[in-house]
Design a protein around this nucleic acid. Sequence first.
DNA 1: GCCAACGTTGGC
DNA 2: GCCAACGTTGGC
Length: 163
Amino acid sequence: MRIWLFKTEPDAFSLDDLQDAPDGTSGWDGVRNYQARNRLRDEVSNGDRVLIYHSSCKVPAIVGEAEVVSDAYPDPTQFSAGHPGEDSRSRPDQPRWYQVDVRYHRHFPQPLSLATIRDHAEFADMELVTRPRLSIQQITDRQYQQILALCGADEPRSATGAA
DNA sequence: GCCAACGTTGGC
DNA sequence: GCCAACGTTGGC
């Protein structure tokens, strides 16, 4: 099981929106960057854990977590005429963009702001700091533990096995 | 709203 | 395949 950080603009789709979705589950559509696409398609797996990060908002922060509940499949919005995600270069037999389904897990008691992340030297090599524009980022086990601690969140038993 | 960083496009 | 122009992201 891998741990990821997915970025989203809460004005467009927030963790609350995910919580309110039917079954707390929604397709993570709209990824239009090749490296992020490659990760979604080739590395993100059903059952992986996902930290949700809110960007382009008053307090950019990690706000909670979700889990991946599907394998990658073509993002239908790329074929949807007039949709902002439409890509006229995509063909149904050769889709260009992929998505996975994610299911809401929880809000953290304490969001972890980007400012705080930057204040902590141990996060200096987080992709959030080194490659801030990548929308699908990988999180190490160690970073995950540190993030949970700063968020006041319990370690989920299934995350790493032994506590 | 500004602007720096960086990803993508397209001419050559 | 290079690289300049352009578009987008996202913190501030």
